[in-house]
Nucleic acid binder design. Sequence first.
RNA 1: GUGCUUGUAGCUCAGUUGGUUAGAGCACCGGAUUGUGGUUCCGGGGGUCGUGGGUUCAAAUCCCAUCAUGCACCCCA
Length: 454
Amino acid sequence: MAQKPSIPKGTRDFSPMEMMRRNYIFSTIKSVFQLYGYLPIETPAMENLSTLMGKYGEEGDRLLFKILNSGDFVAKIPEEKRNQLESKQIVRHISEKGLRYDLTVPFARYVVQHRNEISFPFKRYQIQPVWRADRPQKGRYREFFQCDVDVIGNKSLLSELELIQIIDDVFGKLEIPTLTKINNRKVLYGIAEYIGETEKFINLTVAIDKLDKIGIDKVLEELRNNGFSEKALDSVCEILEFNGNNEEKTNFLSDLLGNTETGKKGIEEIKTVLVYAKSVNLSYEPEFDLTLARGLNYYTGAIIEVIARDADMGSICGGGRYDDLTGIFGLPDVSGVGISFGADRIYDVMLEKNLFPEETQSGTQVLFVNFGEKEEKYCLPIVEKMRKAGISTELFPGAAKMKKQMTYANNKNIPFVILVGGNEMENGFFTIKNMLTGEQQQMNFDKMLKLVVS
RNA sequence: GUGCUUGUAGCUCAGUUGGUUAGAGCACCGGAUUGUGGUUCCGGGGGUCGUGGGUUCAAAUCCCAUCAUGCACCCCA
């Protein structure tokens, strides 16, 4: 062994057991998406950098994986920039493609490019990996899967409701207890209006978003450092410290933000969504959370975030409404709303809480032990019959030692092993061993089939 | 990009104030058992102690550098 092979930081291999479990998550999510009439699309792993840059803020640009151009790219760097080794300056000369950072921006690009083939509202889902050049840590990877559902080309708040229902269904099926928090960007903007700091709206949201992590004092301190007036801070403090149920919160804010232009709209929207949510059966009612802000700046209306109860994992699902995402690609006034399930974090939570059902962990149901050439030949048509009957069946490749074959079945969690040797061939029966109980009996094909199916 | 942590067998780790040939458990392979796994018993393979330099009679152990990893910040699924 010359050098131990390895994979890049923040990436992972998935072994069979993990893949079975991951596929269980993906297929559950997919089935729910389809139940609500969403259709799948895929987009390339790499996009033109021009599509990606500037869509996620300055921080986002830093976290984009950039792909080096082919050929002698150095020659294309203008003479005067050759000597200044500032990455920012030369990056656009040596890289024009990047790995996708999320699925929403590529989707917006897709919609603009295919606008004439699409009939709106367009409901799509997309399950693909995304890449971020972040420092990995718990629940954070450099390559991870997002499962996006979006509906675009429609302003109805019924779409927000639909997403809330999808969240409830998915986590219901996966049996993960969750807390769905919703807020509205317009409400946050309303707060900025109310305190007269609309210019610093972004700073305000970034600070508020940290409330449950760093506490009110540090949030206020951060705002103070950003130049917010003491009077503004008092108001922010008053709002953030308000406690109550959804209704009390909306009432409180209605009074407070009643005279603000955008805030008023936001309150109306969130009220509507909450009323909708009351009218359907949900396991967990969404909670109006004023401190939810979410970093992505393209959100303009509802914002949603889901966390797993009793798990320290950050959000496992999040999203919101964006009114003009396609505008930057030349198609204005197309409103959309969407959410993204973080499959990898969901996996981590389910693993931690032991939520994977037994049946996701087995593949092969029956293994035929291979005793030799004659026996092999005899078994092949039987194996074929088993598979035709829908039973996942293997014949051990080669007449390896019995111990080896049994160990193989054991390690692979195969519940039944069938032994066909001279005795069985002569008398036309099968010896079938239950690997769980160790019990062993002899029977004909039909009986065997029945036993395996049950 | 900033701060801290940890690098010893495939995996999880032990290894005393620096001192013989660096250990254990699990996993793997073989045997006890040529048609019986999971339990038991016996045996076996596997290590440039992350890498490079330094101190020393002597370094897994001390020092420096470097790389890798994990965690936290920033940000985020």
